[in-house]
């Protein structure tokens, strides 16, 4: 795609290791992981459970510090980037605040930033419409299904329009129709705002459909197994999904898994 035009490195993961625990009861979540994510690129992390995908996202967002190696974002360390609120994150679980309605949850980041309600209610309303929760604006999280809660979390992650989006299996709890809609929305958003997106998923077709590159990881310890370039095609959802190229790519990714399984 347009990436070749300017392959500027946005996120550099340099020989990163992460060991949890101490005193002999250690778990090596990540071992000497190296890769780069280019600006405005859509990268998927694909790998078996426990290979350190969530941990990797937390390291990028400065929610954890690596026990080895370093992470650079642009020219900065993750902390500086976090303090400038340049990250949006969707955790594996929706992580809503139970005492806030859908709208208030989505507005949380803007509220924390110190913006005024009059400044951000238009933004939150637009996001609510996008994730299809217009009728549920004033609902509390316990009144929503799991998939609806996850859509709130996605809208919240977009609320500050962050240049970097970290998404941990954001669509895995959604039905096929909503999933398809949000996948297309996400690609639209990326096209319009040139976000850099790191996206964790367990679904090979989803990774192939969305990504510019797929980073396949292996577990115990978590490592990068291989990195695959995906040539994204133009066309409708159906066209792409049914094309021979698409099937070829998914088969190749699946092959990577079989190689170490």
């Amino acid at each position: 795609m347009s990436l070749d035009r300017q392959k500027e490195i946005e996120i550099r993961i340099d020989d990163v290791s992460m060991v949890f625990g101490r005193n002999g009861r250690e778990v090596t979540a990540l071992s000497q992981v190296c890769f780069e994510v280019y600006r405005s690129e859509f990268v998927s992390l694909l790998g078996p459970s426990g290979c350190g995908k969530s941990t990797l996202l937390r390291l990028m967002a400065d929610l954890l510090e690596p026990t080895g190696g370093q992470i650079t974002i642009g020219e900065e360390v993750p902390r500086e980037v976090r303090l400038k609120r340049k990250f949006g994150i969707v955790f594996q679980s929706p992580t809503l605040f139970e005492w806030r309605t859908v709208q208030d949850n989505i507005e949380l980041p803007m509220e924390v930033l110190g913006l005024k309600k009059s400044e951000y209610s238009a933004i939150s309303n637009q996001l609510i419409d996008m994730v299809g929760l217009t009728k549920f604006k004033q609902y509390y999280p316990w009144q929503l299904s799991g998939g609806m809660q996850q859509r709130v979390a996605i809208a919240r992650a977009l609320s500050l329009d962050p240049p970097i989006l970290l998404m941990d299996e954001p669509f895995s709890a959604l039905d096929e129709f909503t999933k398809e809609k949000l996948q297309l929305d996400l690609l639209d958003i990326q096209k319009q705002t040139n976000k850099t997106i790191v996206f964790v998923t367990h679904s090979i077709p989803e990774a192939v459909f969305l990504s510019d590159r797929i980073i396949v990881m292996s577990a115990h310890p978590g490592r990068v197994h291989s990195i695959l370039d995906i040539e994204r095609e133009e066309g409708s959802y159906e066209q792409i999904r049914n094309s021979d190229r698409f099937h070829e790519m998914t088969a190749r990714v699946r092959g990577c898994f079989n190689a170490y399984a």
């Binding site: 976090r82 609120r85 679980s93």
Partner: peptide
């Protein structure tokens, strides 16, 4: 939940 705290941390 830890993630709720992480969220607040993420937004500084």
């Amino acid at each position: 939940k830890p993630e709720q705290e992480e969220l607040m941390r993420l937004y500084a």
